[in-house]
């Protein structure tokens, strides 16, 4: 009897401890990044070009680069993802095709991001002769985040009650009208949440853009999608590993990390907020 009591006590504490340690790690992590980098933040850090071999100045071109890669990849992946999700959940025939598509999506979502980088390199950069450019990088990122958007769409559509479909059909709506006028509006918040999360993912990825879009240093801002760009994640990596003056470059890396972290936290926080409000407001 006593042994059982001890085991129960130990078990409970072990579980509490595992949460405690996890949270402690994660808080320490966030705290260190913010405490070392926050001091770096200023308007000029955000709006100036790097100076003196990147030992001074700001990260403006890296911010622009990350924003353009993220936006363009979203522009490509969002419509494709939503349309794919509609096909999988609403048409779903023929079954063999659906099962191949689903297996492909699952495989894509498990494939390492560096492999996407190599795919982008040999297909977009070399194959289609797009070179190292925003376009190559965005296409690569788009393929990477496509599964997230598809899965979000499928899940959200699945949660729309059958009643709505039935009501719309009974009013004489065609399948397309049921989808575009009833199902998609009802599923929109969920699709949006998933897509915003994928934006955060695209903004933070480094490996896929290593050989497809990113450059360590450029003096000018990109003029078109065929230009190579600086990007925040790559900037952090490059400053930490290829820099020549660590004492002045590591603080810039921290500063960049804080900017990137804030960007991603705001993006994901927005997604979670939308979902929270949707769940509260939803009355079906």
């Amino acid at each position: 009897m006593k042994k059982r009591k001890i085991l129960e006590f130990a078990g409970e504490w072990a579980l509490k401890l595992s949460v405690g340690i996890s949270l402690a790690f994660l808080f320490l992590f966030l705290f260190m990044i913010f405490s070392k980098g926050a001091g770096r933040l200023s308007i000029s850090f955000l709006t100036q070009m790097p100076k003196n071999g990147m030992t001074e100045g700001g990260i403006f071109p890296a911010i622009i680069g990350t924003l353009s890669l993220t936006l363009l990849s979203m522009l490509i992946a969002f419509p494709l993802g939503v349309l794919s999700g509609i096909f999988l959940s609403e048409y779903g025939k023929p079954a063999w095709l659906v099962s191949i598509i689903k297996t492909s999506i699952n495989t894509l979502s498990g494939t390492p991001s560096i492999v996407f980088g190599l795919f982008g390199l040999s297909v977009f950069v070399i194959g289609f002769n797009m070179g190292v450019s925003i376009l190559s990088g965005s296409l690569t990122l788009a393929v990477l985040i496509l599964p997230i958007i598809i899965n979000a769409t499928v899940e959200s559509i699945k949660s729309v009650p059958f009643d709505f479909r039935e009501a719309a059909f009974s009013l004489g709506a065609t399948k397309r009208q049921v989808i575009t006028r009833v199902i998609l509006p009802a599923a929109a918040p969920g699709i949006l949440t998933g897509s915003i999360i994928s934006v955060g993912r695209a903004a933070g990825e480094t490996a896929p853009i290593l050989f497809t879009a990113a450059t360590f240093y450029t003096r000018r801002l990109p003029k078109s999608v065929m230009d190579e760009v600086m990007a925040m994640p790559y900037h952090i990596y490059a400053l930490m590993t290829e820099g020549t003056a660590p004492e002045s470059q590591v603080p810039i890396a921290y500063g960049t990390a804080v900017v990137l972290l804030l960007l991603v936290l705001i993006i994901n926080g927005t997604a979670i907020l939308i979902r929270y409000r949707m769940r509260k407001r939803r009355n079906w």
Binding site: D163, A167, A168, S170, T174, R181, V182, P185
Partner: peptide, 27 residues
């Protein structure tokens, strides 16, 4: 679809769309 315009239906559980009162009626 045109048959269903001629034959309306009301279901067991009230199932308005998550839209406005006007949009529901005008659907």
């Amino acid at each position: 679809t045109s048959l269903r315009m001629k034959v309306g239906m009301v279901f067991q559980k009230p199932n308005p769309f998550p839209k406005s009162i006007f949009e529901n009626t005008a659907f």
